[in-house]
Amino acid sequence: MDWEPLIVSYLFGFVLLNVLLLAMAYMTWLERRLVAFFQDRIGPNRTGPFGLLQPIADAVKLISKEDIVPANADRLVFLVAPLLSFVLAPLGALVVPFGDAVTVFGRQVNLYVIDINVAALYFLAVGSMGVYGIILGGYASGNRYSLLGALRSTAQVISYELVLGLSLVGIFILTGSLSLVDILRVQQRTLVLGGLELPNWFLLSQPLAFVLFLIAAVAETNRAPFDLPEAETELIAGYFTEYSGFRFSFYFLAEYINMIVVSLIAATLFLGGIDGPFVDGVWWLAVKAFIFLFFYVWLRATLPRFRYDQLMGLAWKVLLPLALINIGVTGLVRLWGIGAL
């Protein structure tokens, strides 16, 4: 067995996990500041310059809180569920390519952890496993509100996962591959439209799929306006009502890491990932992912929460048919060779 690439992959994964955790911490700060500005407030600005030390203070506070297990809880499941949520959240980022291969210490190092030929499906599979943390947490709390949150989350995630998966099929048809590295390579080409030279990003050839993916991704990560599983005003925070201290923070971490991972995947699939003007590189990926994260916060600050039946109606009666139409049209275009992409 060849150990060297394995060890390099593990090291890269370790660095990636730490970067994700740091990004997550500052995402909470950024969200609080941005929402505050949207609402004409100031936001956290007391801890350190611009409140930059606020995430660290929050982490210390959460660690030092008491870990409460309700008497009515299913103890083992209750203790494990948040860990499940947290462990599965960063796994999706493993397939994101962060750049072309670089040479470190005379060795060729690929800037991704793994390149499997089912990368996009792997991302969906990890996402579909992630819902278990929510379901089991809600069930094990022994609390009606938590159970309702878990039930809503189940129905919501199953519905929107379908849309998420189907919105990507157009890309698969155009590239003939499910590997994110291959999809990225196709996007790094140049698209010549008349006299215009455009980047061959799938945002341009699959705009409908992009919109569907964006909507489904917001629902999949349980963010406003689709945050029904944790609707504060109706369910008192839903599935994590009974969690306290560090176990609560695991759910918190998982939610934000999910947001970052989905943003990275969306940037890679639709916005050309590391492709950009001047020099390609991981900075373009960071900029694009930041655009998505800003969009998330913007949505949360702008839109009220959907009603539950509207949420399901939207998925099954509007988004799903649109995704199917998109697949049909893309397949026909590919069959007749009009796109020549």
């Binding site: 089912v118 499906l121 792997y122 969906l124 599979a125 579909s128 496993m129 819902v131 278990y132 379901i135 069930y139 189940t154 995630v157 199953i158 996962e161 998966g165």
Partner: peptide
């Protein structure tokens, strides 16, 4: 991946 998406991601979730 199909096993994880279909069986664990959808069917067992519905059972739960």
């Amino acid at each position: 991946v199909a096993q994880v998406i279909v069986y664990t991601g959808a069917i067992i979730v519905l059972v739960l």
